[in-house]
Design a protein around this nucleic acid. Structure first.
Length: 283
DNA sequence: GTCCAGGCTCTTT
DNA sequence: AAAGAGCATGGA
């Protein structure tokens, strides 16, 4: 008998929009509003029926311990949407278009490797690279309908890969970054267990000790794995938004942070995610 | 063929 | 401090 949890009356949630929001890559679409989803070493079956979310593969204890937080189900998104929509017409359109987007709370180590890969890369290639890493170095979770599903590998498991091995997975020049970052984390050079409890600026500096992590990648990691909603990741898309919509001329980190905090507020990272989703997906 | 993608590192002004 | 070159790969 398969475990199942049903969460009822969750508004401001769309599994479709979350999958297409460029923060999680380990999912497979079965049909509309129905996904197989891998995270935290588990394969879950997520189906959304209106405002209800059906999750197969977990029990209620696992839901309370892990998945409630993973899908950020305790944050008041209605209040955030209302706040952002009141800012200007662009955010009003963006929040209206992507009102089901949520910020996931994902595994820190996995996000570190994922967003090192993301640099100067596109989403389909990021997704396929992570699948190859998992299939090659991750543990088999289970087989379903003839397909094998693998967990994201642990630091130790990934450390078995040489730079050449990583290059063979199609990671490009990022192979060296991933190799060194894995080593540094295994050696305890950067203590992952303490990152989330640090002040945002301190946490960012700690992450930037790792090769392949600059401001933008660090901010994505802080937003998608550490609950830091006061960051503002600036990629090529968000840079266009800042220049075209908000006439922010200087897109240096300092200038952007000052603008983002004063204009969008303390949860500017969430506003950024609505804008990113909007400009990438809307016509 | 050129351009671009959820950029970073290293070098040169 | 700021700006530029180089970097792997594959799709448009």
């Amino acid at each position: 008998m398969m475990n199942q949890v049903v969460i009822k009356n969750i508004s401001e949630f769309s599994i479709e929009q979350i999958a297409d929001s460029g923060q999680a890559f380990r999912w497979e679409k079965i049909k509309e509003n129905h996904y197989l989803w891998i995270a935290h070493g588990k394969l879950i079956d997520v189906e959304q029926v209106n405002d209800d979310i059906h999750i197969k593969g977990i029990n209620s204890h696992e839901y309370d311990e892990t998945w409630k937080n993973y899908f950020d189900l305790e944050r008041d998104y209605q209040a955030l949407l209302k706040l952002f929509a009141s800012k200007d017409e662009h955010l009003k359109a963006a929040t209206s278009y992507g009102q089901g987007v949520r910020i996931l709370n994902q595994d820190l180590w996995e996000m570190i490797i994922t967003f090192i890969i993301s640099g100067n890369n596109n989403i389909p290639r990021i997704k396929s690279a992570i699948e190859k890493i998992s299939a090659t170095y991750g543990e088999l979770i289970e087989m379903r309908d003839g397909k094998s599903y693998y967990a994201f590998p642990s630091p130790h498991a990934l450390s078995q890969a040489s730079i050449e091995d990583l290059r063979a997975l199609g990671l490009g020049y990022r192979d060296k970054y991933i190799y060194k970052t894995t080593q540094l984390i295994l050696e305890g050079e950067v203590d992952l267990s303490s990152i989330s409890s640090l002040e945002t600026d301190k946490a960012r500096e700690a992450l930037k000790m790792l090769p392949g992590i600059g401001n933008k990648v660090a901010d994505c990691i802080l937003l998608f794995a550490c609950g830091k909603t006061d960051v503002f990741p600036v990629d090529t898309w968000v840079k266009k938004i800042l220049e075209q919509y908000y006439h922010v001329e200087k897109t240096t980190p300092k200038a952007v942070y000052e603008f983002a905090h004063s204009y969008f507020g303390q949860d500017c990272g969430i506003a950024q995610q609505y804008l990113f989703y909007y400009i990438r997906n809307a016509k």
